[in-house]
Amino acid sequence: MSRPERDELLRLAGVTCGYASEAVLVDVDLAIRSHEFVGIVGPSGAGKTTALRVIAGSMRPAHGTVTRRPGLRMAYVPQVETINWSFPVTVRECVLMSRVGGRRLPWASRAERAQVTDVLGRLDIGELADRHIRELSGGQQQRVFIARALLGEPELLLMDEPTSGVDVRLRHEVLHLLDDLNAAGLAIVLTTHDLNGIAAHLPRVVCLNRRVIGDGRPHDVLTSDVLERTYGASMQVLEHGGMPVVVDSYRRAHAPHSVESAA
């Protein structure tokens, strides 16, 4: 069994797992270190969510090992599409859910109330504590679930498609927020479909399609070869403002000339 290095939070070694008899992840090696900000990209069905579940411990691998640093505190933010927004729960009640391991009494202690107020204030949603979760904007809703995760004081934050189905402004808002949290010392692993809007901005990208196809800095990983092997489709990588810009070949072939010249 491989042992985590000193600054490693966790390590997946030769992990194979799936649902029923179908393997979704095959022989995956992945290490997450302290303060890292990692994006996992890949096509639908590539095993991104499954990888997060294995990291989180909610799914056990059929083969291979997952080694976590003893006492590692993790928090998981699910896709907003999976949330039941009609559930009768206020922002305060939702955030307090992460305090499930300590105090058993149903009502929050004075210290817990202060902590909830503090974390909501840090995320600029302090005035929404008594609102129902459906009565918020998309960005505020995302912040509520990040607040719930942060209340557990995690060292590693796992986020499944945090910008799925959101507009550009909200995507920027979420990305800036995560950047700030990462700068404050929080390690973050997220999954995303958004190569240009999210992945290209992260310090480390993992291309996954059942297996790890590429792992490293966006410049090193977001290449035509790696992306073609990941997505099974021809893709071109251009450079714009010092950052890689991925354009699929169909779009490129039919795009106006001005796009290429601008890039």
């Binding site: 989180a56 411990g57 909610s58 993790m74 928090a75 998981y76 933010v77 699910p78 999976t82 949330i83 039941n84 559930f87 729960v89 009640e93 939702c94 307090l96 859910m97 992460s98 305090r99 499930v100 391991g101 105090r103 058993r104 009494l105 149903p106 557990g152 796992l158």
Partner: peptide, 23 residues
């Protein structure tokens, strides 16, 4: 309900995340 209020609420609302949180 009194003793496991928080765990029951978390499980009812969001079982997958509750699982990760140790419930």
């Amino acid at each position: 309900i009194f003793a496991r209020y928080r765990a029951l609420l978390f499980t009812t609302f969001d079982p997958e995340v509750a699982d990760v949180a140790g419930v």
